[in-house]
Structures are given as structure tokens and as C-alpha cells.
Computed example of a mutant assay.
Amino acid sequence: MDWIGRMNEVLQYVEENLENSITADTAARLAGCSEDQFLRVFSYLAEQSFRDYVRNRRLTQAAFDLLKGEGRILDLALKYGYESQDAFSRAF
């Protein structure tokens, strides 16, 4: 099994869907394995959980958007899946 190639497909899926819902189930299907197996392999290869990786990528992209002045904090919070400006601020 070409884990690196499949993980690259998963990373591309994450990058293309930072503003949308990202599920471990969909990522596992892209990787061609069960969700449990995917989560174990991903955390081994990335040295962090899939959930943490997605959250960190969203926060990083939101930080870039803030630096570029692409919207208010509340707008960016909602764009990247946070329910409120407070939750978004706490995540930072």
C-alpha cells in the first residue's frame, strides 16, 4: 500500500476543503482504508491527530486572511467553522 501517496491525496482534500466540513471518514475513503486504521497511520506519520491537523491548518489559513485584511474576525470565524468570535479567539 502506497501510504505516502494516499496521505498526499488526503492532505490535498484537506487543503481544498478548509472552509467546508472535513471528516475522517471521507479522508479514510481517500486513503483506501478504515477510519480507525487511517487515524492511526495519520497520527503516526504526521505526529499529531487528524483533528488537530485540520484545526491547525484552518487557524493558519485564518491568520493569513487576517494579515491580508480579508474580513472581520467574526466573518473569518464563521468561514473556518467556528460558531462564534469568542470560540475562534480562544482557539488562537
Results as ranks from 00 to 15, higher is better:
Met1Cys: 05
Met1Asn: 08
Asp2Thr: 09
Ile4Asp: 14
Gly5Trp: 00
Leu11Trp: 08
Leu11Tyr: 10
Leu11Pro: 00
Gln12Ser: 11
Val14His: 06
Val14Glu: 06
Val14Pro: 06
Glu15Gln: 12
Glu16Lys: 12
Glu16Val: 01
Asn17His: 15
Asn17Glu: 05
Leu18Lys: 06
Glu19Cys: 08
Glu19Trp: 00
Glu19Lys: 13
Asn20Met: 08
Asn20Val: 00
Ser21Pro: 00
Ile22Thr: 05
Ile22Asp: 03
Thr23Glu: 07
Thr23Arg: 06
Asp25Tyr: 11
Ala27Val: 03
Ala28Trp: 02
Arg29Gly: 04
Arg29Ile: 09
Leu30Lys: 10
Ala31Pro: 05
Ala31Leu: 01
Ala31His: 02
Ala31Lys: 02
Gly32Gln: 03
Gly32Glu: 05
Gly32Asp: 04
Gly32Phe: 03
Cys33Asp: 05
Asp36Arg: 13
Gln37Pro: 00
Phe38Ala: 03
Leu39Met: 13
Arg40Val: 14
Arg40Met: 10
Val41Lys: 14
Phe42Leu: 05
Ser43Gly: 09
Ser43Trp: 03
Tyr44Pro: 00
Tyr44Phe: 12
Leu45Asp: 10
Ala46Gln: 12
Glu47Val: 09
Glu47Ser: 12
Glu47Leu: 07
Glu47Cys: 08
Glu47Thr: 11
Gln48Ile: 06
Ser49Asp: 09
Phe50Asp: 04
Arg51Trp: 05
Arg51Tyr: 11
Val54Asp: 07
Arg55Val: 12
Arg55Gly: 01
Arg55Glu: 15
Asn56Tyr: 08
Asn56Lys: 14
Asn56Ala: 15
Arg57Tyr: 06
Arg58Met: 07
Arg58Asp: 07
Arg58Ala: 08
Thr60Ala: 14
Thr60His: 13
Gln61Val: 10
Gln61Met: 14
Phe64Gly: 01
Asp65Ile: 02
Leu66Phe: 04
Lys68Asn: 14
Glu70Thr: 08
Gly71Cys: 02
Gly71Phe: 01
Arg72Pro: 00
Leu74Pro: 00
Leu74Arg: 13
Asp75Cys: 01
Leu76Asp: 01
Ala77Glu: 01
Ala77Tyr: 01
Leu78Arg: 14
Tyr80Asn: 03
Tyr80Met: 04
Tyr80Val: 03
Tyr80Thr: 02
Tyr80Cys: 04
Tyr82Glu: 02
Glu83Lys: 15
Ser84Val: 06
Gln85Met: 11
Gln85Glu: 15
Gln85Leu: 07
Gln85Thr: 14
Gln85Ala: 15
Gln85Gly: 10
Gln85Trp: 06
Asp86Arg: 14
Asp86Cys: 09
Ala87Cys: 10
Ala87Lys: 14
Ala87Asp: 15
Ala87His: 12
Ser89Trp: 08
Arg90Pro: 00
Arg90Phe: 09
Ala91Trp: 04
Phe92Leu: 12
Phe92Trp: 13
Phe92Ser: 10
